[in-house]
């Protein structure tokens, strides 16, 4: 061994306490860094897999009311892959033991329970029976905030009518991972939750038989996105003058025609934020969930 190498080892041994401490700090730092990187990768992978497995939509469209037969016309638009019409509404909830105001975002699920897009992962219980209009599935964070479980009951004011609802299941949805109320700075799981009811039940309550007020769709891979929708369609109808509606141009043209058609029905058609799903922008989704109701009110 060379003299200088011997010097190195001897001096390292002489300050072994400090060397150990430094090694420990560096190792801890590196380990923490690796742990964070691994966590980030794992979360990203999980998010992507969850979005993929539960068919998270690329585009979210919120409107006042449109006939169900418009669905086929939207489906025919070049670039649109899968499409699902829904009925969505806001309701005041009356949770036992919680005196403050609670709002629920009610989302319809097909009567047969087979959601095409934004499918639900049932953590506990089951989906509502098709013929029952008083059964709901609620999102997990809301359930945890109020310690609710399947078979528990709470009341809701749906379209001005007080109704007792029974929880049949607790679910996760890629659409409502981080649910936030319009204008909120952070999620409030106690005061805002997502509820899923059968399409028949919610349509009946909101007079939406044969109609829809919400569309979610996926695009074919490679469909070109642009921001023509807001200016070309909403701008014309006095909608939001803001950038952010992104769709394939041809999809946009098609939807513009659909919008014209909706106008014939004397309804206003609103397109809002659309998402590119190549990386499943979940965080944008919560923005959407609180943006739509507000947008609807402004039209």
């Amino acid at each position: 061994m060379k003299a200088l190498t011997r010097k190195l080892w001897r001096e390292l041994w002489q300050m072994k306490g400090r060397v150990f401490a430094i090694t420990l700090v560096v190792t801890s730092g590196v380990a923490t860094f690796i742990m964070f990187i691994s966590t980030v990768h794992s979360l990203e992978f999980t998010r992507t897999k969850f979005c993929h497995d539960y068919n998270f939509a690329d585009v979210f469209v919120n409107l006042k009311r449109a006939p169900e037969n418009l669905k086929d016309k939207i489906k025919d638009i070049n670039g649109v892959n899968q499409l699902e019409t829904r009925v969505c509404a806001q309701a005041k909830l009356d949770i036992k033991g919680f005196a403050e105001s609670v709002t629920g975002k009610i989302i319809s699920i097909p009567d047969d329970g087979k959601l095409l897009l934004n499918r639900l992962y049932i953590r506990k219980g089951r989906l509502p029976e098709p013929f029952r209009d008083d059964e709901v599935v609620i999102n997990e964070t809301f359930a945890q905030a109020h310690n609710l479980n399947p078979s528990d009951q709470f009341a809701a004011v749906i379209n001005g009518k007080w109704k007792k609802l029974t929880i049949t299941g607790i679910a996760l949805s890629p659409e409502d991972i981080l649910l936030m109320k319009a204008g909120a700075m952070s999620p409030d799981f106690k005061r805002y939750g997502a509820l899923w009811m059968t399409r028949k039940a919610i349509s009946k309550a909101y007079d939406m038989d044969g109609a829809f007020n919400d569309v979610v769709l996926t695009l074919y891979p490679g469909a070109k996105l642009s921001d023509v929708i807001i200016d070309n369609i909403l701008g014309r109808y006095g909608g939001l003058k803001k950038k952010g509606s992104i769709l394939a141009e041809d999809v946009g043209k098609g939807l513009k025609n659909a919008g014209d058609e909706i106008e014939k029905f004397g309804k206003k058609f609103l397109l809002s934020e659309c998402l590119e799903c190549d990386s499943c922008q979940m965080h944008q989704l919560c923005f959407l969930t609180f943006t739509f109701p507000e947008v609807t009110q402004q039209i």
């Binding site: 060379k2 003299a3 200088l4 011997r6 010097k7 001897r10 001096e11 002489q14």
Partner: peptide, 16 residues
Amino acid sequence: LISSLTARENVSVVTE
């Protein structure tokens, strides 16, 4: 002199 080396090793630093 290098304090952590012996007399012989201090000289070895050069002879090496």
